[in-house]
Nucleic acid binder design. Structure first.
Length: 437
RNA sequence: GACCCCAUCGUCUAGCCUGGUCAGGACACAAGCUUUUCAAGCUUGCAGCGCGGGUUCAAAUCCCGCUGGGGUCGCCA
């Protein structure tokens, strides 16, 4: 159905086969993840095949560590692949075709290198997103196909693999547009069928410049470490250059696949906004079941050096208390530090403002009342608190804030009585007594 | 510099193909409500078709130019 629409010759129904072809010379970049995502969505919405092809022809720069990192990030994002190839295992194939072009006189040797003669031509490529793009190959230099060391160049290996793997649509970043005419010449020399192309707009940094580590995190793994959820990242990335329509912003991968259309992808580059990503992440955290959220938080607790083997039920109570105010998983560590650290941290400013000498008596009264409780929950602690406030004839606010500081070290946070409940009687009483010296 | 791509609120976008809807939504920002604080939530507000020519009764939408931005010019991928 849709497959026929994306095809220039409507009579032949082409099976959709797309690929994401990262080079393991670095971590999976957020821009690479977007390219992978769009390829994945196109494959899935067309009932096609998504291929992961590792372009590791450069033995010097390719690292096993990076390869593993890329695979891990792809899985984490939920971008599963149907077929997997490594170019380093296919060198014989590239050599064979290089020899063929040499035999046919279409390429020549320069030392050990094999070079393709460029013929003056007008090439047109059909881009699903941009329409027809015309190039004049006259200005193109002869292209190196095989390097002196016997390994193929990017374009040569790419063309051969795309052909042999029967890639129907080459979906890649806009930075590859200028490579396309060169590759077309290789397709033609080889007598291969030319696939359709779709060049995605580039992702820019917040200022509209080129995305780099200088202006923010670029590796998918960095965002994971910062506590972003794959759902949030994927959702944000798909919104960069595409819209599901109906004014929808929050869209799951499954829902997006149902609506995806490569032709609706924008042509203009998009600036990456960490704030919108963060907002989406907040939405996913809020709707996440407490149990699952708690699971996801455990590795962060461990990384922070906090004891992750605490009572599970208690931990879930804490998570419940903070889940509505988390933008990232990492935020939880800041909120809940007072529950894991032996001592609270109070700024000098807050100490002077809230923990004044006159609070000593108030805190003592409150501590005494709380000490007598057998059941230490929201209702019972509040009852004691109201009582103390009544006896002292002070507005409750004048005690609430100092107490929050004394217990958590923070001026902000959830309701005071829920806070007391998770802190527990022993620590609550102790911190009240120790607060003012 | 050459070649190529692009252009709607500060940002992401809908609308453009098949001209005629107060140019719609979201993030951010501001205000209000709520409230023991901070968030969250709800309500409201602010803000845009880069410029200049055409074509047309009518242009964000079609055409041309300009300007601006981006990309590529490796025996890296």
């Amino acid at each position: 159905m849709e497959a026929a629409l994306d095809n220039t010759s409507p009579n032949t129904l082409v099976k959709v086969r797309v690929r994401f072809a990262p080079s393991p010379t670095g971590f999976l970049h957020i821009g690479g993840a977007r390219t992978a995502l769009f390829n994945w969505m196109y494959a899935r919405c067309q009932g096609g095949t998504f291929i992961l092809r590792i372009e590791d022809t450069d033995a010097e720069r390719s690292k096993q560590e990076y390869l593993e990192e890329i695979l891990r990030a792809m899985k984490w994002l939920g971008l599963n692949w149907d077929e997997f190839y490594k170019q380093s295992e296919r060198f014989d194939i590239y050599r064979k075709y290089a020899a063929q072009l040499l035999d046919q006189g279409k390429a020549y040797k320069d030392g050990e290198a094999v070079i393709l003669k460029m013929l003056p031509d007008q090439v047109k490529i059909f881009d699903l997103i941009r329409g027809e793009i015309k190039f004049d190959t006259e200005t193109l230099k002869d292209q190196v196909l095989m390097k002196s060391d016997g390994t193929p160049t990017y374009s040569f290996a790419c063309v051969i693999d795309d052909s042999l793997m029967e890639i129907s649509h080459v979906i890649r970043g806009e930075d590859h547009i200028s490579n396309t005419p060169k590759q077309i010449m290789i397709y033609q020399a080889l007598g291969f069928k030319i696939p359709k192309f779709a060049h995605l707009p580039l992702i820019m940094d917040e200022e509209g410049g080129r995305m780099s580590k200088r202006t923010g995190a670029t590796a998918v793994s960095d965002y994971q470490k910062e506590g972003f959820l794959p759902e949030g990242i994927v959702n944000y990335l798909m919104l960069l250059g595409w819209s599901p329509g109906n004014n929808q912003e929050k869209v799951s991968l499954e829902a997006a696949v149902k609506k995806f259309s490569i032709k609706k992808v924008n042509k203009a580059g998009a600036a990456f906004s960490i704030e919108k990503l963060t907002w989406l992440n907040t939405q996913y955290i809020k709707e996440m079941p407490v149990e699952k959220l708690t699971d996801l938080l455990l590795p962060f607790l461990k990384a922070k050096g906090y004891d992750e083997n605490v009572d599970r039920q208690w931990l879930e109570e804490v998570v419940k208390l903070y889940r509505m105010r988390l933008s990232t998983l990492l935020d939880f560590m800041d909120w809940a530090d007072y529950l894991f650290e032996p001592d609270i941290k109070v700024t000098e400013e807050d100490r002077v403002k809230y923990l004044t000498a006159d609070k000593k008596e108030w805190f003592q009264k409150l501590a005494d009342g709380l000490q007598n409780l057998t059941k230490f929950d929201h209702a019972s602690t509040e009852e004691v608190f109201r009582n103390v406030v009544g006896v002292l004839s002070i507005p409750s606010g004048s005690l609430v804030h100092p107490v929050r500081i004394a217990l958590t070290g923070k001026t902000i946070g959830p309701g005071l009585f829920e806070t007391m409940a998770v802190l527990g009687k022993e620590r609550t009483v102790k911190r009240l007594k120790d607060a003012v010296s």
